[in-house]
Write a protein that binds this DNA or RNA. Structure first.
Length: 537
DNA sequence: TTAGGGTTAG
């Protein structure tokens, strides 16, 4: 009777499952080998490793530890709780692990971010099924190895195995992050051709992919086709508008969502506030921030405060933004101060920046971005001695800038450029192309802005730092390999630097090309010499 | 009858 109840509850209501488990223990009733797996799974769902360990003890005590179902559930439980050591111990003791055991341990390594080990096991296992493939592809996607994820999808296709909705979610999400619209479209075709169902998760992944790849129109089209949408589908679309700076659209869809009867979630407001920030709608943003708690009972989190700091700061209300940070009820974390520092950069305010830097750098001394930001602010306000201090501090603390990279998709292939890249097979041609571009934009008035570049010059990046930015190489490749009127689409992992921004505006004018650059924060649409971000980013 | 899926400020 208890066993049946545990089974019944564990899937959809793990807490209830626990309650019955505790009652069973009190009544000295032992779960059997069929109900233990449910119990252990319930522990995993709640990430309640202590309860899981206790259940494990019971399993051993009652001699169920050699049952494959029980063992699999333990591997799963430890994996999901992030205790890969314990998971691996159970797994390696198994006499005849089956495909579920292997898949569970692979999921465990993916969960802790060890995709290499996961892949090793994946390659080694005797037999794989679609869930295994899905686990590995998703593991790559979850750990930001998007290129690896889509490579493995290619292997799957080459083997003639048909992917299902779950696999396609990971694949499409990977293309979204890579900004690879052509490949993303192909994946969409695959979904249609194979009659996969546009369920709410797959649909949301597609909406997100099109939005992130710069085609908000297609994102809306998929959104309209979805038979069912939940709050995350709407949020993906709203986040898409935010990335492009279309604040009014974001707000319009938000009211439509609310009118359709769905309750917004905290992340919906994160996207919405970010939309207001990128679109410069200060008053509206503040109003929405107020209404979060008042109308929807959602307590603002640090992220939301961060958005408001960004909203005020970006609009030039630096004093107000600083006051807001000092008076907020939560303890401001590094990203909050970072948003304020970012605003100081836009509005060249070294005074506030210095105050913020003194708080921020001790708070997160290993984070290179803040040194760079602060240094750039000093450089822009000609405080060179401070720039030198920053450089020294970074050196002393051994802080390195993460390497920047830019992606461009040409003929269904994603090309990844790093700063000063020499690896690309066509690199010589690309460098010649860049020199040609440089000559032409110089004639149009480009002088090269070195203020942001100062910080790029560390030991490894000395030569030509500015003119070897990954973004410039990717743009040169785009100019070389694509024809107008097709836009040149670039995806960057970092924020666009001032110099690249200026250069790209001129390139759009001189070469008559439209360039769509997605950086860490948002989209920049360059056309006829100007950018959709209005130079605030 | 055990394993796998979308969203999140700067």
């Amino acid at each position: 009777m208890y066993n049946a109840l545990i089974k019944g509850f564990s899937g959809e209501n793990p807490i209830k499952g626990f309650e019955f488990y505790v009652r069973m223990l009190r009544a000295n009733i032992v779960p059997d080998n069929l109900s233990f797996p449910f119990l252990v799974r319930a522990c995993a769902q709640l990430e309640g490793i202590d309860m899981g360990i206790q259940a494990h003890g019971q399993i051993v005590k009652h001699g169920f530890e050699n049952d494959v179902y029980v063992q699999n559930s333990l591997v799963y439980m430890y994996s999901m709780c992030g205790d890969i050591k314990a998971a691996n111990e159970v797994f390696s003791r198994m006499l005849s692990p089956n495909v579920v055991s292997w898949t569970s341990i692979i999921a465990g390594f993916n969960k802790i971010g060890d995709v290499e080990m996961a892949r090793e096991l994946f390659d080694k296992m005797p037999e794989r099924n679609l869930v295994t493939w899905s686990t590995m592809i998703n593991g790559y996607a979850k750990n930001n190895c998007f290129e690896k994820a889509v490579e493995l999808f290619q292997v799957l296709k080459d083997k003639g195995i048909k992917a299902n909705e779950t696999v396609m979610v990971s694949v499409i999400s990977s293309y979204a992050h890579l900004g690879a619209i052509e490949l993303g479209e192909k994946a969409h075709d695959y979904v249609v051709k194979n009659n996969l169902s546009l369920n709410v998760i797959l649909g949301t992944a597609l909406v997100d992919m099109y939005a992130r790849c710069g085609s908000i129109e297609k994102a809306i089209k998929v959104f309209d086709q979805m038979p069912e949408r939940d709050v995350l589908s709407w949020t993906a679309l709203i986040a898409g508008f935010a990335m492009h700076g279309y604040a009014e659209k974001a707000i319009w869809f938000f009211s439509k969502m609310v009118n359709s009867g769905l309750k917004p979630r905290d992340i919906t407001f994160t996207s919405l506030l970010s939309a207001c920030s990128h679109g410069g709608l200060v008053e509206k943003g503040l109003e929405l921030f107020e209404s979060m708690k008042r109308d929807y009972g959602i307590e603002p989190r640090l992220e939301h405060y961060g958005c408001v700091v960004d909203l005020l700061g970006r609009a030039g209300k630096l004093a107000e933004a600083e006051k807001f940070v000092l008076e907020m009820p939560l303890k401001p974390n590094a990203p909050i101060w970072g948003a304020l520092l970012g605003a100081c950069r836009i509005h060249r305010n070294a005074e506030i920046a210095e105050r913020v830097g003194n708080i921020l750098i001790p708070l997160l001394p290993e984070h290179s971005g803040y040194y760079v930001l602060l240094s750039n602010i000093y450089a822009r306000t000609n405080r060179w001695e401070n720039v030198e201090t920053m450089r020294q501090m970074m050196k002393e603390k051994g802080v390195k800038k993460p390497p920047g990279y830019s992606l461009i998709e040409v003929d269904g292939k994603v090309h990844n450029f790093k700063m000063g890249d020499k690896l690309h097979p066509e690199i010589e041609m690309i460098e010649r192309k860049w020199d040609e571009i440089l000559r032409k934009i110089r004639l149009a008035g480009y002088t090269g802005n070195t203020s942001d570049a100062l910080f790029d010059i560390d030991e490894e990046e000395k030569e030509n730092a500015l003119h070897r930015h990954s973004e410039k190489l990717a743009i040169a490749y785009g100019v070389m390999r694509t024809e107008a009127p097709a836009p040149i689409r670039i995806v960057k992992n970092l924020r666009v630097c001032e110099d690249c921004h200026t250069a790209t505006k001129l390139i759009s004018k001189v070469f008559g090309r439209e360039l769509i650059v997605r950086d860490r924060n948002r989209f920049h649409h360059f056309k006829e010499g100007s950018c959709s971000c209005m130079d605030y980013w």
